[in-house]
Every structure is written in structure tokens, then in C-alpha cells.
Design a protein around this nucleic acid. Sequence first.
DNA 1: AATAAAACTGACCGTACGGTCGGTCAGTTA
DNA 2: TAACTGACCGACCGTACGGTCAGTTTTATT
Lengths: 217, 217
Amino acid sequence: MQALAATAPTAHQSAGELAILDAAVRLFSVHGYDGVSMRRIAEEAGVSKANIYHHFASKQALYFAIMRRSAEELTALLENLAEGKGSFEQRLQVFASAHLDHLFDNQARVRLVLREAFSGDEEKSRAVVEQMVGGLVNRLIAIFEAGQRAGLLRDDLDPGLCAHLLMGADLFYFQAHGLLQQIPEAGFARQPDRYSKQMIDVLLHGMLAQPAEGRVK
Amino acid sequence: MQALAATAPTAHQSAGELAILDAAVRLFSVHGYDGVSMRRIAEEAGVSKANIYHHFASKQALYFAIMRRSAEELTALLENLAEGKGSFEQRLQVFASAHLDHLFDNQARVRLVLREAFSGDEEKSRAVVEQMVGGLVNRLIAIFEAGQRAGLLRDDLDPGLCAHLLMGADLFYFQAHGLLQQIPEAGFARQPDRYSKQMIDVLLHGMLAQPAEGRVK
DNA sequence: AATAAAACTGACCGTACGGTCGGTCAGTTA
DNA sequence: TAACTGACCGACCGTACGGTCAGTTTTATT
């Protein structure tokens, strides 16, 4: 399969088309592209299979439409994520917390994009970077670089690696959330807020040149 | 689909059967269960499709056999991972580094298991925890708990959360490796050793009660 | 050399797949 | 009211799917 491509803006959509998109997002995010049939989508959307082909040229075209829409939505949400005010520490704290909320509030689309991003297909990874996370990552790196220039971040750390650790801590928690439920010792799996606080506390404590004293209670 | 079940020990295997298993591991790890046909597996293995059914009762049975074998292999490798000697810090450093090496040395099987673990299916997650990562996670948590009792680990941190952050840092790096190649600023994507060192340095620095002075050069 | 078990194959089966087609129908527009 | 359009459907097409089976070749044992 090809990677998703940038396409024309969204036109107005009929109720049926919206139902199709909604069902397809849900199904693709859980079962993947090959695990979902057009019949199943039509059934879940309450329309005929032929109707899907009236709105979308092919199964791939439907999938691309969903990826494009997801990319737009997630990009819009991510847009303001790195623009927080306040101190270096506060900005990172707010980012981590908001990022985690954002992931859980958009589970289906996030799963869809993660699947594409981590598929191992170079073309897909590039598309995800260019159209979605690239800008966010660069801005987050810029924050760390600025912090490093200001002497707030340890000067022996790679800012890109710091950004990776911060985003990764959120993303991995999101991914592993279901699995953590199966581990009795992982009580933090049921408290995303508490996780975010302790996680960012550990990272900042480990990254900052002069770690803050305010610790988690 | 059901979760993988514990089954009988491995018998001796013909060359054909090994070729089938090898091809199936490669294909399933890249394209997922639904993305691989029995014809394709037979083709890549250089045998007839019917021959697969001589060795395995069904596609699911083949998949389960692979998952069981992967679970055995990975468990064996993971077995000694948390048994290092030396100080608290040294043990964690060695663990993180060996864990990362282990992931990259067993890419296909790890991808296979991660797909199952993060599928969102409760039954699959439980199987992965019970048969594979459960023991390792508990031992890693025990290390952190011991470190906390000894006053080496900050007393305001959840040992389970610390274990999660450590394993997650490795696993997420492994997952995102392909994507990181698309980000010019992520030079650390090409230096797993350097990543492991800085990563563990940040985490230990953030977790330890009295952080070590020996930093990455 | 005889033989039985295991490994292996080509041809085939029923089904579900992605996709197409002719056509119905409600709602503009002229 | 006639022409036209977009939304929608049932029936159908060729293909690839998972799986079966009768029969052949290979291998190990006696």
C-alpha cells in the first residue's frame, strides 16, 4: 500500500458518508486495514456496500480519506500544544499532561496513526512525520534547545533525545495502558494524572541542570 | 481470535516445517495476521500450501505455534536480564542496555509480541503478561523496591512506575526507530548505545535519592 | 528389497473478498 | 412537468481466501 497523500479540502458530507467514515475509523483503528472488510463497514454504518463506492473510489481511498482527516484533526490539536507560557519547567509539565489527555481523548485516530507510524514502512513513517508530528517534534526540540542555552537543561544532553523521552513516556503509557491493567503492581495505570506528574517529575529531575525541589506528594 | 495458549513441548522438525515457521514469523511480524495469506507463506517458504496443513491444523494453529515459540525464546532471553550483579545503578544500567540489544536482535519476534500486547484485546494482553513479561516486570519492580528500601531510590516514587519508565524507554525507542530515521534532528536514532547511556542517565538522575556524578561524556 | 510412516504435491471446494452495474427515488432547478 | 443530480440499493463478477483430499515421493527401519 502507498503512503497517505495530501489532498483537496473537505466538502459537505451526507449523513451516510459520515456514518461510513465513523464506522471505518472505529473498525480500522481496532483491526487494521486488512482486518476490516467493506461489507463489515457497510453493515456497521447502516448503508449498502455499493453506497460506500458512491462516496469513495476504493477501500484504499476510504482509508486515505480517514488518515487525512485524522492527520488534520490531530495536527490542529497538536498545534497549540507546544505554545504554553510560563517557565521552562511549567511549559514541559503542561505539555506532558495535555499531550496525554489529548491521546486518550482521541484514542481511535491516535491508534490509527501510531499503526501507520510504527508499521516499519519507510514511506508511511515519512508521511506521518511530514504531515503530522514533524512540526510538533521540532517545536519541542526548540524548547529544549532554548532551555539548554539558558542553562536550565543539562548541557551534556541531546535536546532531541530529551524531546523523544518526553513524548515517548506519554505515547508508551497510552499504548501499554490496556496491558498495564493486567499487572496488579501497576496501580498507576488507573491514574493518568498521577502518572503524568511522577513521570514528568522524574524526567525533569533527571534533565534539569538544577532540579526543582517541588516533588510529587 | 483467541489468545495464545500453553501447549506441549516442541518435537523434532523437518526442514520444510522450519522453512514454514521462518517465513511465517517474518511475514506475520511485518503485515499482521490478516495481512498474510497461506499461499504467500507457502511461496516464501518454498513449499506447497497443502504441506503447511500437513504440519499445522489451521492458520490460527500456525500463528499460535509461532507465538508460543516466540514466547519461549524471548522468555529464555529475558530470564537472566534482571539478574545482574553490582550496585543498584549498575544493575539498571546493564539491564537497560542488554534489554535494548535484545530487542534489536529479535526484531521480528518482538514486533509480533508487541502487536499482540498492544492490540487492545484484553485476553491477548493477559496472555502476554502471564506467559512472558510478567515475571520480568515483577523482578524489575522488586529491584526498584529493594533500592527504595535501601534509600537509594527516591521514596516519593512508585517502583512500578519506575520499572515502566525504564522498560518503556527501551521499547518505545525500538518501536519508533524507523520513524526517527525520518527526523534529521534525531541523530541518536542511529546510535542505540549512546541513546541507552543518556536515557538511563536521565532516568537514574531523576529517580535516585542522591544522583551519581558520572555523566555521559 | 520390502514396507510403513512421514513429507509433500496439484487439483479442487465453498466462501468472502473488493469492486461494478443497472436502476430507483427524493429533491432541486428551469 | 420535464430534465437533471446525488444518494442509495440488490444482484452480480472475477478473484483470492482458508481448507481438503487422493495420490506421489522421500526417508527410516527391518
